[in-house]
Design a protein around this nucleic acid. Structure first.
Length: 811
DNA sequence: TGACCACAGTTTTTT
DNA sequence: ACTGTGGTCA
């Protein structure tokens, strides 16, 4: 290599590096190290996403320019001098020439694959890339493991025996199938809990064991239980195959099989993806590991990003070894540690470091920050869980009076069940709050029902979804009938739907043939209407035609009202789907996306509310004020964890995750006694509290436990001291007034029906679902009114006016 | 087929 | 304490 070439290479790297001047040195290394395997150990709050985005930008702009000694074309002394001059004194006008000289085979967008775990992360990545790079970024493959695999499978799954229009089963669907399997194998659900069977199967799939291999293994070991489960596994696999369905594990499993066993497919993708990035690598399971290494197997440019200290998903198969062993699995791998934290203060970090230091299985990182020492961590011991909740709320309300937003506060707990006391305290104090997690929108029965209708319309062969909705709303088609038909379907090799449609051919079904026939005709009508329909309109058409909406309206209790809202809310999902310009704006496309996209309600921002969530759901988020409650032995770490060292380390990582969410102030609380699962038990402070260095915390503890919780007016833990006390007291009084008002208005009946139209008995109305009818009676109820309407075609129905209003017209 | 009662389980969660 | 589910009875 000539002297000139050396100068060129150095100048090229420096010129590219200048693009990333805002990053710190380590972050910049992460961006510029483009070639070969790279492990990016990114501590909490170390600007991981920024690095990821800049890295992709760099790949698209300069290719391997920053990480190679190649010189793609002969260079001249003038050019080297130009670059060296540019570094000294960058002139925007000369940037194009600089870019031209520095780029070495820039990656085209579709040659970059960036994989994340959640859709949220994938969307964020895509959006930020597009903001930085414009249109071009759209073709980058930024997606979750599952959606990347579905994309691959939709193209090539026929090589492994499924057809390209396969359906995706969610966990609920899987459960149903397992139940069916248990029943037909004569196994008892109590001896073989569905949860466990699913977990065992998932495990087997993770090891890539076929049912046959699984059975063989346990037969030779003589494990009766496992042999039985193996039989379920076999039948389950067969059923899914016959239904042309894949569960979540299968999506990855079959992609791995496809790539492993079919050279031409494998080579296509290996050639295509010059650069592969995997985010949250500490959360990958074996299958995902296999997938990553298959996809990156061509160019071997695999960059994994993660933090072994934040691995908290062992229970769902994540294998921390994947990140711990990355360097030995990938020879020549480079490792970059991002340890500068931009989020928290030093006391918070030192406290968190103090805890995580006690884990043995880790790579070892020590976070530091330039943010200054900040406040020490507050530890507070209270008498019981409602004291704890009151303390936290008191602190939050004080912060609010000092000008903080409600949403600056997050309360984190180990289990969802712990949210009760906190929720209650918020309600009593009139503090707006939002609980994240719990039952998700797409998990709600009514939403699933409507989706099931759409699935059946899309693909009548979807037996499972068909069974779900055939009798919802009630069509007098009971389980017995469906079972009979299912048997016949299996016998004749037809789908369940075909048997329904030809029910009259079966003497066994003669009693219900007419009803079955009517049902399939309903579906057929809706199928015909799909052609050319606008998806959103079509959805409301389906809601009405199926009678589902009417069913909910009839019930007219608050529960059904909420359900109705959810059913309507689904149409906004369709809107949202169409809005972000999908490749495939059809019903099938929508169902595909919905199957993999389950967190619609990520309305984390927007409303100004105190946020309450589990520590798991807090991962990746940050808040100025964080309260971690329930720091008690037996709860956190949980009972199961105290006897299992691996599990204990996982709990400790979870603690580390929770603590590092805090930007300004961290409060940890424990209660001396707590009611959980109906029992009150005393418990010791969590060992994690004792692992925090004393310098970094202040442990407030009440000398004497209070016997009795005072009623709702007493906020004894407000504890403002000194000269401000009076002022605070006045404010408290004002606040209480507010609270009482709120409470009163909640307790009393809602506001009178000022806005309701005055429909009277005797009037003729038209209902969008029931048709024409006459109002028999109007009875005011609360802020609403109960209507009794005699419809011409469907008989007399009771409707709540507020609910029915949008479906009713006069005359 | 639908209503009602007894009973068990109860970490964490994404796709 | 609470909730969802499964089995039994009308």
């Amino acid at each position: 290599m000539t002297e000139l070439e050396k100068r060129f290479i150095a100048a090229r790297r420096q010129a590219i590096a200048m693009e990333y001047g805002k990053l710190n040195e380590r972050q910049r290394q992460g961006v510029l190290t483009t070639e070969g395997p790279l492990l990016l150990l990114a501590g909490a709050g170390s600007g991981k996403t920024t690095v990821l985005i800049n890295r992709v930008a760099n790949l698209l702009k300069y290719g391997r320019g920053s990480d190679t000694e190649e010189i793609p074309m002969p260079i001249t002394g003038d050019e080297v001098e130009f670059l060296e001059g540019y570094i000294q004194n960058p002139d925007p006008a000369q940037k194009p020439l600089m870019e031209y000289l520095c780029a070495v085979e820039p990656a085209r967008p579709w040659e970059v694959l960036a994989i994340t775990f959640t859709n949220k992360a994938a969307t964020e990545l895509k959006e930020r890339l597009e903001r930085m790079l414009g249109e071009e970024a759209r073709d980058v493959w930024a997606s979750t493991f599952h959606s990347a695999c579905v994309r691959i499978l939709r193209r090539d799954i026929e090589h492994v025996g499924f057809s390209r229009d396969f359906t995706i089963y969610d966990t609920d669907d899987s459960k149903r199938v397992v139940k069916d399997c248990l029943k037909s194998l004569g196994l008892d659900e109590k001896t073989f809990p569905v949860r466990e069977v699913l977990a065992v199967m998932s495990d087997a799939k993770d090891r890539m064991q076929t049912p046959e291999q699984f059975c063989k293994q346990w037969e030779s070991a003589g494990e009766w239980r496992k042999i039985r489960i193996g039989k379920v596994y076999r039948l389950y696999t067969q059923k899914l195959f016959e239904a042309n369905a894949l569960d979540f594990d299968d999506i990855i499993l079959h992609t791995v099989r496809l790539l492993r066993d079919h050279r031409e497919v494998r080579e296509y993708y290996q050639r295509k993806f010059r650069y592969v990035l995997i985010d949250e690598y500490q959360d990958t399971n074996n299958l995902q590991y296999q997938l990553a290494s298959l996809l990156a197997g061509g160019h071997r440019n695999i960059c994994v990003v993660g933090d072994d200290d934040q691995s908290i998903y062992r229970f769902r198969g994540a294998n921390i070894e994947n990140i711990l062993n990355f360097e030995s699995e990938y020879k020549g791998a480079r490792t970059i540690r991002l340890e500068q934290n931009y989020r928290s203060t030093q006391h918070i970090l030192d406290a968190a470091n103090g805890v995580i230091r006690n884990n043995l299985g880790r790579k070892g990182k020590t976070l530091w920050t330039n943010n200054g020492a900040g406040d020490t961590v507050t530890v507070k011991t209270t008498f019981n869980e409602s004291d704890e909740a009151n303390y936290v709320l008191g602190q939050i309300m004080m912060a609010y009076r000092r000008g903080a937003n409600w949403k600056d506060n997050a309360i984190l707990y180990r289990m969802n069940a712990q949210s009760n006391a906190l929720e209650y305290a918020c309600k009593r104090n009139g503090v707006p709050y939002k609980i994240i997690g719990g039952t998700k929108f797409f998990d709600r029965a009514e939403v699933k029902d409507m989706l099931a209708y759409l699935c059946v319309i899309n693909n009548p062969a979807d037996d499972l979804r068909l069974r779900r909705i055939v009798n919802v709303p009630s069509r007098k088609i009971g389980a017995a009938t469906v079972d009979k038909a299912q048997l016949l379907a299996t016998r004749d090799g037809r789908t369940l739907y075909e048997v329904f449609a030809h029910a009259e051919e079966y003497p066994e079904l003669k009693n219900t043939a007419a009803k079955l026939k009517a049902f399939t005709e309903l579906i057929e009508t809706m199928r015909r209407a799909l052609d050319g329909a606008e998806l959103v309109d079509y959805y409301s058409y389906v809601c009405e035609t199926t009678g589902y909406v009417a069913m909910l309206q009839e019930k007219n209790d608050p529960e059904s009202l909420a359900r109705l809202e959810n059913v309507e809310e689904l149409s906004s999902s369709i809107h949202a789907f169409l809005d972000h310009e999908p490749d495939n704006p059809t019903l099938a496309g929508f169902l595909d996306e919905v199957a993999l996209y389950t967190d619609l309600d990520d309305t984390t921002d927007g409303d100004n509310c105190v946020l309450m969530m589990t520590m798991h759901s807090a991962k990746g988020l940050e808040f100025p004020y964080v309260y971690v409650v329930g720091m008690e032995e037996g709860i956190f770490p949980g009972n199961r964890a105290v006897s299992d060292p691996e599990e204990l380390e996982e709990e400790r990582r979870l603690c580390y995750v929770a603590m590092t969410r805090a930007k300004e102030h961290l409060t940890l609380t424990n209660a001396r006694q707590r009611m959980l699962f109906g029992r009150t038990a005393a418990s010791m402070p969590s060992r994690f509290l004792n692992e925090i260095p004393e310098n970094d915390m202040e442990w407030l503890s009440k000398p004497e436990p209070r016997q009795e919780r005072p009623a709702f007016d007493d906020f004894d833990d407000y504890g403002a001291s000194g000269g401000v006390a009076y002022r605070v007291d006045v404010e408290i009084a004002a606040h209480r007034q507010q609270v009482k008002k709120t409470l009163d208005s909640v307790r009393k009946a809602p506001t009178p029906s000022a806005a309701l139209p005055d429909i009277k008995a005797g009037e003729t109305v038209h209902h969008s679902a029931f048709g024409k009818g006459m109002v028999l009676s109007v009875r005011p109820m609360g802020g609403d009114a109960l209507l009794e309407v005699a419809f011409d075609n469907v008989g007399t129905k009771k409707l709540m006016l507020k609910t029915a209003m949008s479906h009713l017209t006069r005359g």
